[in-house]
Computed example of a mutant assay.
Amino acid sequence: MSWTRALLAALAVCVLLLTGSVGCGSSGTQEQKIGESPSPVGELLDDSDEEGRLYREVDEEQAPEVGIEVQPNSSDSWDVRLTVRDFRFSPAGTKEKPVAGQGLAHLYLDGRLIARLRTPEYRLPAELVPRGTHHVTARLYADDGTVWAVDGEPIESTADITASEADPTMSAGATGVRTGGQGSPDRAGKAS
């Protein structure tokens, strides 16, 4: 009778192994499936920004959004205010690991990086804005330095500003380049 018990025990072990309920040498971690990103958040793309930072693609439903508003200030500067949705700014010293909807914003003036923001407000000195019309862009980055992206495009918003010698003025307003939302005008770039 002992051989029948041994046979039943062996069959039970085989059933458990075949159904995946038990694994030999398992440490409790899941193996990466073929085609999955090794990153915990989004998928790294081959595309990168001007600085060579890779795009981190996320689904539109999970994507953060950013809007930008730039207003002249009486102290001969510009007040920049970002409005974000499904995004929070990381404090300085945050671990360089991507976390969904978290990171910092890079602020560009005519395509040139002028600040890395960990808060939604910034004072843009007038001496950085020569006379003429300029583009101020806010782009969202993960804490590991990758660019948050949707459909292969960075999540960013741009405002046009016009500086004159006597009085800085806001031109037609902010225009969204890519916000991660549905692309509606209210969500695209204008602060709500």
Rank of each mutant, 00 (worst) to 15 (best):
E50K: 12
G52H: 06
L54K: 12
Y55P: 07
Y55H: 10
R56D: 05
R56Y: 00
E57S: 14
E57M: 14
E57L: 13
V58H: 05
D59P: 01
E60W: 04
E60S: 14
E60K: 15
E60V: 14
E61H: 10
E61Q: 13
Q62L: 10
A63V: 08
P64A: 14
P64E: 07
P64W: 08
P64T: 14
I68T: 09
I68D: 06
E69M: 07
V70H: 00
V70G: 05
V70Y: 00
P72N: 01
P72I: 00
N73C: 09
N73F: 00
S74F: 00
S74H: 03
S75Q: 13
S75K: 12
S75A: 13
D76E: 12
S77C: 13
S77Y: 02
W78A: 04
D79G: 09
V80G: 07
R81P: 01
R81K: 13
L82G: 09
L82A: 06
L82D: 10
V84N: 03
R85A: 11
D86N: 15
D86K: 14
D86V: 10
F87S: 14
F87N: 13
R88Y: 01
R88E: 13
F89M: 08
F89W: 11
S90Y: 03
S90H: 06
P91R: 11
P91F: 01
A92L: 09
A92E: 14
A92C: 02
G93H: 02
T94E: 08
K95T: 10
K95F: 00
K95P: 15
K95Q: 14
E96T: 10
K97V: 13
K97C: 05
K97N: 09
K97T: 15
P98E: 03
V99I: 12
V99K: 08
G101S: 04
G101Q: 12
G101F: 01
Q102H: 10
Q102P: 07
Q102S: 15
G103Q: 10
G103P: 15
L104H: 14
L104Q: 12
A105K: 08
A105T: 12
H106Y: 06
L107C: 02
L107I: 12
L107R: 08
Y108Q: 08
L109Q: 09
L109S: 07
D110N: 11
D110Y: 07
G111F: 00
G111H: 02
G111I: 01
R112F: 01
R112C: 01
L113R: 13
L113K: 07
L113T: 04
I114P: 03
A115G: 07
R116K: 11
R116E: 09
L117P: 12
L117K: 12
L117V: 11
L117Y: 02
R118A: 04
T119Q: 12
T119G: 05
P120K: 06
P120V: 03
E121R: 04
E121I: 09
Y122Q: 03
R123P: 15
R123W: 01
R123Q: 12
L124A: 03
P125A: 00
P125T: 06
E127T: 10
E127R: 14
L128S: 06
L128I: 02
V129K: 05
V129M: 02
P130L: 01
